[in-house]
């Protein structure tokens, strides 16, 4: 199947997951928020977060059972770079109150002003970063 069709199917699935969480529980499906509010967990508001992530972790295993191979994950960069990037992503999404799913999917869908601003900024920052990294040919394989 053409990759654009697969992308559209995948996007539709992500949308259905967000709609489901809102329809039944009333929660925004923002991954950084669902994760970071477990650090530390708050009494009475942690179990659904854990079961959400259990679902996220089980899906690749199902894909493995179904197709015989794990989904492709190609990560380039040495360990110090990966650590710096991880801290930036973790802290940045908490400080900005959302990531690609919370601001980018759920926030844009309800035309939230804050999410439109945040999504514009993180997309721009990511595009500029990729441009600079590629300019210096700095991507090295693990």
């Amino acid at each position: 199947m053409h990759e654009y069709i697969l992308a559209l199917i995948g996007g539709t699935m992500i949308g259905l997951a967000a709609v489901m969480l809102m329809a039944f529980q009333g929660n925004v499906m923002g991954i950084s928020g669902i994760a970071s509010r477990l650090l530390p967990p708050v009494s009475g508001d942690w179990s659904w977060r854990i079961s959400f992530f259990a679902g996220v972790l089980v899906a690749p295993l199902l894909a493995m059972v179904y197709s015989g191979t794990m989904p492709t994950v190609e990560i380039t960069g040495n360990v110090p770079l990966l650590i710096v990037a991880g801290i930036l992503v973790g802290a940045g999404t908490v400080i900005g109150n959302g990531c690609t799913s919370g601001h980018g999917v759920c926030g844009l869908s309800r035309l939230s002003r804050r999410s439109i601003v945040a999504t514009g900024i993180f997309m721009l920052a990511a595009v500029v970063t990729v441009f600079i990294v590629n300019l210096y040919g700095a991507r090295v394989s693990l």
Binding site: S32, A35, F53, A85, V117, I121, A126
Partner: peptide, 24 residues
């Protein structure tokens, strides 16, 4: 709301992982 997404975007551009895909 400006600083957070800047930090996040730089980290995302460096490695290509945002929080959801990082778990998967």
């Amino acid at each position: 709301l400006v600083a957070g997404p800047v930090l996040f975007g730089v980290g995302w551009g460096l490695v290509g992982l945002c929080p959801g895909p990082a778990f998967a």
